[in-house]
Design a protein around this nucleic acid. Structure first.
Length: 802
RNA sequence: GCCAGCGUGGCGGAAUUGGUAGACGCGUCAGACUCAAAAUCUGAUGGGGUUCGCUCCGUGUCGGUUCGAGUCCGACCGCUGGUACCA
């Protein structure tokens, strides 16, 4: 009988899913294992080969864990709020609910068609009111703890599309959708105070088992820097300027100051400022630039001196000028800097342009030529009481001086900003807040949750960039939960990051009406043992969800400090041309076509065999054929099974080596070499006259996580009634792995000249003697003196001669 | 610019602590089967030379450490990802 995947795959899928073999049981005698993959956004185009790669790794792990006797939770769900659905719905005049449901149906079918062993009874959908009820509930808890607040900010606004855009959607100052220029619009928006958790998010990384680069990226995102906050007095008015610096030791070199265009000092001191018009004009100009332009495009420093104000350097007592320049950002530090032009390139450029004093304070450079920035270490000069000190000592001494004289203090600053937590969209979780004239902002009572989206025929954008919800009176108009007077609902919705920040908690108890998840169930399943997802989510999503988790831990909702024990990230699959897959390039590969043509098992095997799991790799149609050829051969191997046959020693050794190798490779995400070991096994086994039943069964168990449909079918054909899903995973016998004879390499001056077949335990002396006897060696040592002989047992003999 | 990762055949990629470079797969070539093709099977396949025994060269470039370097060290070149006037 020939291998015919289409005939067997659907049969086994029906068997698995109908019998709910992958459903996790809450609480069990077995040890638990929670494997988590990032849930997909159910787009209209269905599954992508990238999804297959992202899920297959933990699919293998999960199937292996079940065979190893674990109670496995391997769930899936849908991160279904989001723009593409809303846009599509608007265009096609269909309700986003309908679009979402249809897409989820398509996706679920495709997941099942790939044979993924998810627990489909625990599917969560972030757009389901029973789910987002708890997303809203978490928001209210954050609000009550003052971790959710409103503040004014500038947003990217497209006057033509009348929508607020993200940075990604407004690159280069142009609207991503219509190409028009984006303007900066001031808006009241919601923030979550993630900065309050910055230190703990940093510390928590110690618990996370992951690649160094993944940890690094999160550290960089949080961006902790230690230094000092120094206060400068303004001479002409009763105002002070605070600056954050990592280098208080360079204070003697601070010859001017720069503040951000939006800095409040301007408004506060307008009476004394003589060139307010010029400053206003500069301010206006800076506002037309997006943050992108301000940071990316402006190579030449621009700025305006504030006439009428000057600051006093607290240590030199010099009067120094103050400038407004857009290279200083209001959003970082205090929005003001002390400029040390001798040792900072930006300050140096600025000082040269405006002809300002440049004073060297760290020895070593030539400040006539350029800023000297190699100042991690060095010796101070021109700095009074810290002269001749080393940088580290100078920093400490200066901070002490500042503290003693009440001029400043030690300070820590984070690059990470508070999380802008709102969108002006329809298709998102409504923020559960009511605005009341008397009572201010009032959270919706928990008993009234969820605040659902109004059912409208068409989602229409508003004229002024407000959420479409703002135009729906039936939604907006409500009464205040505190005083009962007429009030208005908040019309902003949450960003997509919201629902995905806690979904892994809901999987432990997806149908709970009383709480987001039962504490005992959380305690049983958490933490997530292994979480796999995209590299692009490592900084944002992982940090955001860890922040929510830490908060929920603080209020006693979850039992663990950190949500994840281990995190891995898969590499991208590129198009066959080596470019990133994209519709416009026409190089997108549809995994469903591969399944139809070659079968799901081939797709699974190929996608893991394609290359290093963490590296980007191009797709290859020929590679798919190769994977299929391997499965064809594995299938044919069953014809060699002979119940009365006894395998030879070499076969048994190979089998045990394969068990060991596959196990180790899978655990260290080296799926490609795990498969190559299975291929080698099949190649060798096919050369034997026959293969014993038990050896073939063991092979099928190893193959099962990768190609489960085929493995189950062949196992059944052997006459076994028990399926492989919960069969016992093979273990190896260390004593059977070592071969009796081994090849020893003989080198002369480091070059291989001969090889010897010797028994495995041959000692050093024997090896050396054998090597010396070799005729091949003699050719290369003739007429030379042997200087040294290096013998590495079980490996090689190297004869050094000249 | 900074941070991280990576440079190995025609291609995707393998190579515990430094110890036979190129596993496995693709492609290509030759042969078997076939009227023929496909599929399948067998063999060859880094480059140069060769009396077919072998031999020299070869892991981005240059240098170093070592009996021995793809692996370690230094400098450089290139690619990919992240990030960005971060004070």
């Amino acid at each position: 009988m020939k291998y015919n995947p289409n005939a067997i795959e659907q049969k086994w899928q029906k068997y698995w899913y109908d019998n709910q073999l992958f459903n996790a049981t809450d609480f069990s005698e077995k040890p638990k294992y929670y494997s988590l993959v990032e849930f997909p956004y159910p787009s209209g185009s269905g599954m992508h080969v990238g999804h297959i790669r992202a899920y297959t790794s933990l699919e293998i792990i999960s199937r292996k864990r079940r065979m190893e006797g674990y109670n496995v939770l391997f769930p899936i769900g849908f991160d279904a709020f989001g723009l593409p659905t809303e846009n599509y719905a608007m265009k096609q005049k269909v309700h986003p609910r309908k679009v979402t449901d249809d897409n989820i149906d398509v996706f679920t079918d495709q997941l099942k068609r790939a044979g993924f062993s998810f627990d489909y009874d625990r599917v969560v959908d972030t757009t389901d009111p029973n789910y987002f009820k708890w997303t809203q509930w978490i928001f209210i808890q954050l609000f009550k703890k003052n971790l959710a607040y409103r503040n004014k900010t500038l947003v990217n606004f497209c006057p033509s599309c009348k929508v607020v855009l993200s940075n990604e959607e407004s690159q280069g100052g142009k609207c991503d959708r219509c190409g028009e220029s984006v303007i900066q619009k001031e808006k009241d928006v919601w923030f979550l105070k993630i900065t309050e958790y910055a230190d703990r998010l940093l510390e928590g990384l110690d618990y996370l088992e992951t690649l160094p680069r993944i940890k690094r990226e999160q550290e960089n995102w949080i961006g902790k820097s230690v230094g000092a906050e120094i206060t400068f007095n303004i001479n002409e008015v009763d105002e002070k300027l605070s600056v954050f610096t990592t280098r208080p030791d360079t204070l003697f070199g601070a010859t001017f100051m720069v503040i951000a265009p939006e800095h409040p000092l301007l408004e506060a001191s307008k009476d004394k400022i003589q060139n307010m018009d010029a400053l206003k004009a500069y301010q206006q100009e800076a506002q037309t630039k997006s943050e992108f332009e301000r940071t990316e495009l402006v190579k030449e420093k621009t700025g305006v001196k504030i006439e009428g104000l000057s600051a006093k350097n607290p240590v030199t007592k010099e009067d120094i000028p103050i400038f407004v320049a857009d290279y200083v950002m209001m959003g970082y530090g205090t929005g003001a800097i002390m400029a040390v032009p001798a040792h900072d390139e930006r300050d140096y450029d600025f000082a040269k342009k405006y002809d300002l004093t440049i004073r060297e304070v760290i020895k070593g450079g030539d400040i006539e030529q350029a800023a000297y920035t190699d100042t991690e270490s060095g010796t101070l000069l021109n700095s009074d009481f810290i002269n001749d000190m080393e940088v580290t000592e100078a920093i400490e001494t200066m901070i002490k001086y500042l503290v003693d004289n009440k001029l400043g203090e030690k300070a820590v600053n984070f690059k990470m900003k508070d999380w802008a937590f709102n969108r002006q969209r329809y298709w998102g979780e409504p923020i559960p807040i009511v605005h009341c004239k008397q009572c201010g902002m009032v959270p919706v009572p928990e008993s009234d949750l969820p605040v659902t989206l109004p059912d409208v025929k068409n989602v229409e954008p508003t004229e002024d960039g407000e959420s479409p919800l703002a135009g729906i009176d039936a939604f907006v108009e409500t009464t205040c939960p505190v005083c009962g007077e007429a009030a208005r609902r908040e019309t902003d919705t949450m960003p997509q990051w919201a629902g995905s920040s806690w979904y892994f908690l809901r999987y432990t108890d997806p149908h709970n009406d009383e709480e987001l998840a039962n504490y005992h169930k959380l305690k049983y399943w958490l933490p997530v043992d292994w979480y796999n997802g995209g590299m692009e989510h490592v900084s944002r999503h992982v940090i955001y969800s860890r922040f929510w988790h830490q908060f929920l831990y603080d209020i006693g909702v979850v039992p663990t400090k950190e949500p994840y024990k281990k995190r891995s990230a898969q590499g991208l699959i590129l198009g066959p041309d080596g470019d990133k897959m994209s519709k416009s390039k026409g190089n997108v590969v549809d995994p469903m076509e591969t399944i139809e043509q070659y079968g799901a098992d081939t797709l699974r095997v190929y996608i893991l065999f394609i290359g290093d799991y963490e590296q980007a790799t191009p797709w290859s149609e020929n590679g798919v054929k190769g994977a299929r050829r391997f499965l064809d051969k594995a299938w044919r191997l069953h014809e060699k099974v002979d119940a009365s046959y006894t395998d030879d020693k070499a076969m048994i050794t190979l089998l045990h080596q394969t068990i060991k190798g596959v196990n180790e490779d899978v655990e260290s995400t080296k799926f490609n070499t795990a498969i190559s070991k299975l291929m080698s096994f099949v190649n060798d086994a096919l050369k034997k006259p026959a293969i014993s039943k038990s050896t073939f069964e063991t092979f099928l168990k190893l193959l099962n996580p990768f190609a489960p449909h085929m493995a189950e079918e062949l196992n059944m054909m052997l006459g076994n009634e028990k399926p492989l899903v919960y069969a016992e995973y093979p273990t190896y016998d260390e004593s059977l792995i070592v071969e009796d004879m081994m090849t020893i390499v003989i080198q002369v001056n480091g070059k291989v000249r001969d090889k010897l077949e010797v028994p495995k335990d041959t000692d050093k002396e024997t090896l050396e003697a054998l090597a010396k006897k070799s005729e091949r060696v003699a050719q290369f040592t003739d007429g030379k003196t042997i200087r040294k002989i290096i013998v590495v047992p079980a490996k090689l003999v190297n004869i050094v001669a000249n």
